[in-house]
Design a protein around this nucleic acid. Structure first.
Lengths: 205, 205
DNA sequence: GTCTATACAATGATAGAC
DNA sequence: GTCTATCATTGTATAGAC
């Protein structure tokens, strides 16, 4: 029998949630090492000592932030359906990823930071859960190619292309802004039309 | 008359070069805040105090690393030629960027880190030199579109697509490795064929 | 000119008082 | 459950040895 979960008081639940929410902003803005416990505490409106009462180490806060953000991220890749029309399925996936870049840019940047660091915490997730999901969806794409609905390519590179091109607008936002005139709405509208057009045309047999 | 450059001794030149070279590795591995002067000094085989004799502050080391790496980076975008064949010019650019991802991955990751931080040091470069170069090359792509050689798109998004998709292999290497079987040579050979094929087909009118 | 020794404020972390 | 020492480490400044 598994260990019963520790009972947590209402204050515990609230304070831990507040710390994790504030820590996301701080980790994204300053990076892992630049995010001090003091800054996280200030953002959460608590004392540094009190934060360290709830999470023994800074790394534990970081792990909690990664886990919470990952469950919120929920890659729309999961819904890629082998029975759907490839062009339509992929267009929907690109649009969903672009929406996440825009509205969950903190999550995107947090993951980018973690992977740039060498993915010390994320590594096992990449090699297990994500790997399983990616293998399954690559099989879907391979099936579409067999049916002659897509040009023959190695599926995993298509996923890399969609991930990188959509997340670029979140992760490299300062560069994108320096090189693009117009507001955020226009930028993402243009990006959506461009990426859907070019990638789908490029895959058409 | 401009100020004459300070005369620098042989030891100065050697030690500064050694510090900057070692610091690149440390900044890439640990990020800006995680890179301690002690670690940089150890990597350069010097004492922390001695490193701080040559560079007064950690930020000055970082700026020197960024500047040196930027001159080594020399974006091959510069050679995009309006009189050349668009398909051939763009294919060459994609291949050149992929080669840099592979062989100058430290530079790629250093810039990615800097932009993720909000580009505090790089901002003026992005808004001036890079902006000028990008505007000029967007004009080239616009001209190709006018000549009916490319499908009509907003040029800057094409640059974002090429940058993000090629640099992904350097910046997200741990993720790429977790999801790809096969050695580095195979990976980059596949990526080159995939990206050139899909992007050029997607742009064909 | 080159390098070391030392000091100081800020940080992550621990132990323990209340 | 909250907060106060306390400690080793970090970035940084300065004095001075050679």
């Amino acid at each position: 029998m598994a260990t019963a979960p520790k009972k947590r008081t209402r204050i515990q639940v609230e304070n831990e949630a507040s710390i994790v929410a504030s820590a996301l902003d701080v980790f994204v803005e300053f990076g892992y090492s630049g995010a001090t416990v003091d800054r996280i505490a200030a953002a959460a409106g608590m004392s540094k000592a009190n934060v360290l009462y709830y999470f023994g180490r800074k790394e534990d806060i970081y792990i909690a932030v990664l886990e919470r953000t990952l469950t919120e991220w929920l890659d729309p890749l999961q819904s890629l359906d082998v029975d759907g029309d490839p062009q339509r399925e992929l267009a929907n996936y690109i649009r969903a990823k672009l929406r996440m870049s825009r509205h969950a840019s903190h999550a995107s940047r947090l993951f980018a930071n973690e992977i740039l660091r060498g993915a010390p915490i994320f590594k096992s997730y990449l090699e297990n859960e994500l790997r399983t999901l990616v293998d399954a969806k690559c099989a879907v794409i391979t099936e579409w190619i067999k049916q002659g609905k897509l040009v023959p390519i190695k599926p995993v590179h298509l996923l890399f292309l969609i991930w990188s091109s959509t997340q670029h607008y979140a992760d490299f936002a300062p560069q994108v802004q320096a090189l693009h005139d117009g507001d955020e709405g226009t930028l993402y509208k243009e990006a959506e039309e461009f990426l859907v057009t070019v990638i789908l045309r490029g895959l058409q047999p």
